[in-house]
């Protein structure tokens, strides 16, 4: 599996660390809504298909990436900095035949 880091280019998956479901939303720090906290800490989507995930390029630039990965084919559909606002890379169209 190759993940295209916006800084470093396409790199092997062994350089990355999976950091979990990218759909989770952290409540405001002072929030006392335990249900929201519980959902954030424990609930994970586990779709058979495209999944929005956070990966860290721990063996490279250490940036966190928002990666859309197909959990069935392991195809990486897009990568972008998790901070947002930076460029994202789309897989070349011919990559999907």
């Amino acid at each position: 599996m190759l993940i295209t880091c916006p800084y470093c280019g396409p790199r092997d998956v062994i350089e990355f660390t999976y950091q979990g479901d990218g759909n989770r939303e952290r409540p405001q720090p002072a929030s006392q809504d335990l249900d929201a906290w519980n959902a954030y800490v424990y609930d994970r989507l586990n779709p058979a298909g495209d999944h929005n995930e956070i990966w860290q390029h721990s063996g490279g630039c250490r940036a966190h990436l928002r990666v859309v990965r197909n959990t069935i084919t392991h195809e990486i559909l897009s990568t972008a900095f998790a901070r947002g606002g930076h460029k994202s890379t789309e897989n070349r169209a011919e990559g999907r035949s």
Binding site: T17, Q19, R26, I54, Q56, S58, R62, A63, H64, A82, R83, G84
Partner: peptide, 13 residues
């Protein structure tokens, strides 16, 4: 280290 980086990069950019 990873914990700190995660919060700075993902939660509190």
């Amino acid at each position: 280290m990873q914990h700190l980086e995660y919060f700075l990069d993902v939660i509190w950019p």
